[in-house]
Simulated assay, not measured.
Amino acid sequence: MDKKQLKSRQDSNTREFYCASIRAMSGEGNERKFELSFSSEEPYERWDYVEILEHTEDAVDLIRLNEIGCVLFNHNRDVVIGKIEKAWLQDNRGYAVIEFDTDEESDKFYMKVKNGVLKGVSVGYRVTLWEEVGANKKSTDGRFTGPCSIAKKWFPYEISIVSIPADATVGVGRDLENHENTHQSLNLYQKQIQINKNYI
Rank of each mutant, 00 (worst) to 15 (best):
T102H: 11
T102C: 03
D103L: 04
D103K: 05
E104D: 10
E105V: 13
E105L: 15
S106Y: 01
D107L: 01
D107F: 11
D107M: 10
D107I: 04
D107V: 08
K108F: 14
Y110C: 05
M111K: 13
M111T: 11
K112C: 04
K112P: 09
V113W: 10
V113R: 02
V113L: 09
K114V: 02
K114D: 11
N115W: 00
N115S: 07
G116L: 06
V117R: 05
V117E: 12
V117L: 05
V117M: 07
V117N: 06
L118P: 10
L118Y: 15
K119P: 00
K119F: 00
G120A: 04
G120K: 01
V121Q: 04
V121A: 05
V121T: 13
S122W: 05
S122R: 04
V123E: 07
G124N: 00
G124E: 06
G124P: 01
R126P: 04
V127Q: 09
V127D: 01
V127M: 12
L129G: 03
L129W: 03
L129A: 07
W130L: 12
E131W: 10
E131I: 03
E131A: 06
E132M: 14
E132T: 13
E132L: 14
E132V: 13
E132Y: 15
V133E: 02
V133Q: 08
G134V: 09
G134P: 12
A135P: 09
N136F: 01
K137L: 08
K137D: 13
K138H: 11
K138R: 13
K138V: 03
S139L: 11
S139Y: 13
S139A: 12
T140G: 00
D141N: 14
D141A: 06
D141W: 05
G142R: 05
G142Y: 02
G142V: 02
R143P: 00
R143D: 06
F144I: 01
F144Q: 11
F144L: 10
T145S: 12
T145E: 11
T145H: 06
G146H: 04
C148R: 10
C148D: 09
C148I: 03
S149Y: 15
S149F: 15
S149P: 09
S149E: 14
S149W: 15
I150S: 14
I150V: 15
A151S: 15
A151E: 09
K152W: 04
K153M: 05
K153F: 03
K153Y: 04
F155T: 14
F155E: 15
F155Q: 15
F155G: 05
P156I: 01
E158V: 08
E158N: 08
I159L: 02
I159F: 07
I159D: 02
I159H: 04
S160P: 08
S160I: 02
I161F: 12
V162R: 07
V162Y: 01
V162P: 07
S163C: 12
I164Q: 15
I164M: 13
P165Y: 05
P165G: 08
P165W: 02
A166C: 05
A166H: 10
A166Y: 06
D167Q: 02
A168Q: 04
A168N: 09
A168V: 10
A168G: 01
A168D: 06
A168R: 11
T169Y: 13
T169P: 03
V170A: 11
V170Q: 12
V170R: 15
G171V: 08
G171I: 07
G171T: 04
G173L: 04
G173M: 08
G173I: 00
R174I: 01
D175Y: 15
L176C: 12
L176Q: 12
E177Q: 13
E177K: 13
E177N: 14
